[in-house]
Design a protein around this nucleic acid. Structure first.
Lengths: 340, 340
DNA sequence: CTGAAAGCGCTTACAG
DNA sequence: CTGAAAGCGCTTACAG
C-alpha cells in the first residue's frame, strides 16, 4: 500500500477470501459468522492495519458519529469539567466530541440549525444559558434535531434534562452563613441571561426570609460569572461603611474575584469578611484562603447528558430527568461574624 | 420533507432544473457557472435549507475535515488557550476540531495511528510532551499521517513547528530576580517528560552562572505542572531554615501552588518571599498577590500550528518554523530581597 | 452461515 | 457554460 493509503473493506475481503459483507459482519459483531471465519478475517484485517472508515459508515447510516458540546465561555474550569464529563461517556464509543464555544448563545440562536447541519452533528448537548434560550429550543425542535439540556429551568416537557437544585443549594449556603452569625449578607449575581442566576437569588431570599432577615436590594451586585466581574462587584459591595460581613457569589470565579477585591482593600478573609462561592471548580482550591462553596456536579451532569443523547440517537429509552445532588463544602473563606 | 430529513444535492438540482454537478459547482465556488444560474441555484437551496453533506464530501475527497488536538491535561487554563487558538484558526473553515485529552501521552504512544485512523482525523496538532515523544513521532511518520508540533525541542527536521525560546525566557526571568537582589533562588521544575522542563532549568542555570551564583541542587524541587505538585514542591523548598528568598516555578499553576504553601506557612509574598511563574495563564491574575510571569503565546502557537496543518492538508506551502516571542510580565508576587 | 446488488450524497474525470 | 457516468467505502435489504 502506498504511503498514507488505508486498507479498505475490499482489501480485507479479497485477502481473506470472503465477501465484503462478511467482513462487515465481523466488524459489527453481527451474528451468523462462523467462529473460524471471524478469526481469519480479524487476523487478515490486523495484518492490513484495517479500521472501518467512519466516514463511509456515516454516509450509509446517515450520521456522522459527531456530538457537539455547545457552551458560552464563562470559566475555563467549568468548560474543562463539562468536556471531561462528556468525553468520559464517549470513551470507547464510535462517537467523537466537537467543541462549540460561542461568545454568546443569544447571538447565534437564529443560526443554530444551519450551524449544526453544516458541522454534520448527530446531536448536541446544550449548556446554560443556551439550554433555556427560547429561539434555540424552538429551532431545534422544528428541525427535529436531537439535543439534551444541562441545567435548564424552563420547558420541562421537551426532552431529557440534567439538573441540580439551584434554589435548594443557594438556600443551604445562605443558611450556613446565617448559622455563622452573619446578618448582613451580600450576593453577587451571575449573568442575568442564565436562569440559574434568578434561582440562586430565590434560594438566598428564602433563607433570609426564614431567618426573619430583610433582603436589601443594594446588597445584590450584578456580575457576569467571570472573575473580573467578581472583582468589580466585590468592590462595589465592600467600598462602603455599612459593608456586608459575608458575600455569597453565584460561582467560584466571581467569589475569587470578590476575594481579590477584599485583598486589594486590605480586608482580611475570613476574619473581617466571609466569602462563599458556587460550583466547586478548581479555582476554589487555588486561591487563598480556599473558598467555601457548593459542589455542583458539572462532570456528572455532562456525563449523563451525553449518555442520554446517545440513548436518543440509538433509540434506547432514557430517563427524562436526572436530578444531581449538590453538597456544601466548607473551607477557609468563611467564618463567624466579626465582632462589631 | 419529513421531520429531520435533510435536503440533498439531488433535491436542489431537481427543483432548480439543473444537474447535480451544477449545484456542486455553485457550492464549491467553481468557475463556469452563469451568474444567473448560480443565483437561481442559491435561491432554491436556501428555500430547501440545503447544506452540503460534509460526510459525503469527505467520503469522495478521502478526508473527514476533522482536526485532532492532542494534549495531556496539565492545567485547564493552558488547555482552554490551546483550544481557543486552534478554534480561532478553524473559524469559517469546513474543518472541525476534535479534542483528544489523554492521561499520559507516553501510555498511548503505541496506539497513536490506530487511534487517529479510527477517529478518521485528517491531521493532528501535537502538544508537549507528545510533540517530543519518539514513539509517537515515529509511528506518525511511518504512516505518513499529517501532523504539526507545538513547542518541540527535538527532531527539527520532521515538519512544521511552533516554538518559543524556553531557555531565553527562563534566563530572562532569573536575571530579573537577580536584579531584585535575590541570591538564593529556588526553582520548581515541571514534569520531567516535558523537554521544556530541562530547557527552563538550562536558562535558569545560565543566568545564575553569568551572575557568578552557584546552582544548588537542593534548591531545585520536582513538580508535575499541576497546582498540587506546586504546593508540595513549595513546602519542600520553604520548610527549612535556609530557605530561598525567591522561587521560580516553571508554570503558573505550580507558582500558585507555591504561593499557597507560603500562605499556609504564614510567609508574606512578596515581602518575605518572591514567587515567579511561567505561561501567563489566567491563574496568574486570579491569585493574590498576582503572579509575575513569562507570557508564553499559547493561543498564538495553537493558532499558527493549526494554520500550518491546514496548509499541509491543502498542499499549500507553510513556514517550517515559527518562533513566537515571549514577554516578562512583572506583577505583585515579586519584590526586592528581604533584609537579612 | 454467506454473498451480490443497490444506494448513502457527494466530487472527479470526461464529454459536449 | 453544463451534464451523465463512475466511484468514494461502507451498510441495508434480499436471496440463497
Amino acid at each position: 500500500m502506498e504511503r498514507g493509503r488505508r486498507a479498505t473493506i475490499v482489501d480485507v475481503a479479497r485477502e481473506a477470501n470472503v465477501s465484503i459483507k462478511t467482513v462487515s459482519r465481523v466488524f459489527n459483531d453481527a451474528p451468523n459468522v462462523r467462529a473460524k471465519t471471524r478469526e481469519h478475517v480479524l487476523k487478515v484485517a490486523a495484518g492490513l492495519h484495517y479500521h472501518p472508515n467512519v466516514v463511509a459508515q456515516g454516509l450509509v447510516g446517515r450520521r456522522s458519529y459527531l456530538i457537539g458540546l455547545f457552551y458560552e465561555n464563562p470559566s475555563p474550569n467549568y468548560v474543562v469539567e463539562l468536556q471531561r464529563g462528556a468525553l468520559d461517556r464517549l470513551y470507547g464509543e464510535r462517537y467523537r466530541l466537537i467543541v462549540l464555544p460561542v461568545e454568546s448563545a443569544g447571538a447565534v440562536a437564529d443560526k443554530i440549525v444551519p450551524f449544526v447541519r453544516s458541522a454534520a452533528l448527530d446531536g448536541i448537548v446544550l449548556t446554560p444559558p443556551a439550554s433555556d434560550n427560547p429561539t434555540i429550543l424552538e429551532r431545534l425542535e422544528e428541525a427535529g434535531f436531537p439535543f439534551v439540556r444541562i441545567a435548564p429551568t424552563t420547558r420541562p416537557e421537551i426532552g431529557p434534562r440534567d439538573i441540580t437544585d439551584d434554589v435548594a443549594a443557594a438556600r443551604a449556603m445562605t443558611e450556613y452563613l446565617i448559622g455563622l452569625g452573619h446578618r448582613r449578607i451580600g450576593m453577587i449575581k451571575g449573568d442575568p441571561t442564565h436562569p440559574s442566576s434568578d434561582a440562586r437569588v430565590e434560594g438566598f431570599a428564602a433563607a433570609l426570609a426564614a431567618a426573619g432577615l430583610a433582603l436589601a436590594p443594594d446588597l445584590i451586585a450584578q456580575g457576569q460569572f467571570t472573575f473580573e466581574s467578581g472583582v468589580e462587584a466585590g468592590r462595589q459591595l465592600l467600598d462602603r461603611a455599612d459593608r456586608p460581613t459575608a458575600i455569597f457569589a453565584q460561582n467560584d470565579d466571581m467569589a475569587a474575584g470578590a476575594l481579590m477585591a477584599a485583598h486589594d482593600l486590605g480586608i482580611a478573609v475570613p476574619a473581617g469578611l466571609s466569602i462563599a462561592g458556587f460550583d466547586d471548580s478548581a479555582i476554589a482550591r487555588i486561591v487563598w484562603p480556599r473558598i467555601t462553596t457548593i459542589h455542583q456536579p458539572v462532570f456528572d451532569m455532562a456525563r449523563s447528558a451525553t449518555d442520554q443523547l446517545l440513548a436518543i440517537l440509538e433509540d434506547r429509552p432514557c430517563p427524562p430527568l436526572i436530578d444531581h445532588p449538590f453538597t456544601l463544602i466548607a473551607r477557609q473563606s468563611t467564618g463567624t461574624v466579626p465582632e462589631a
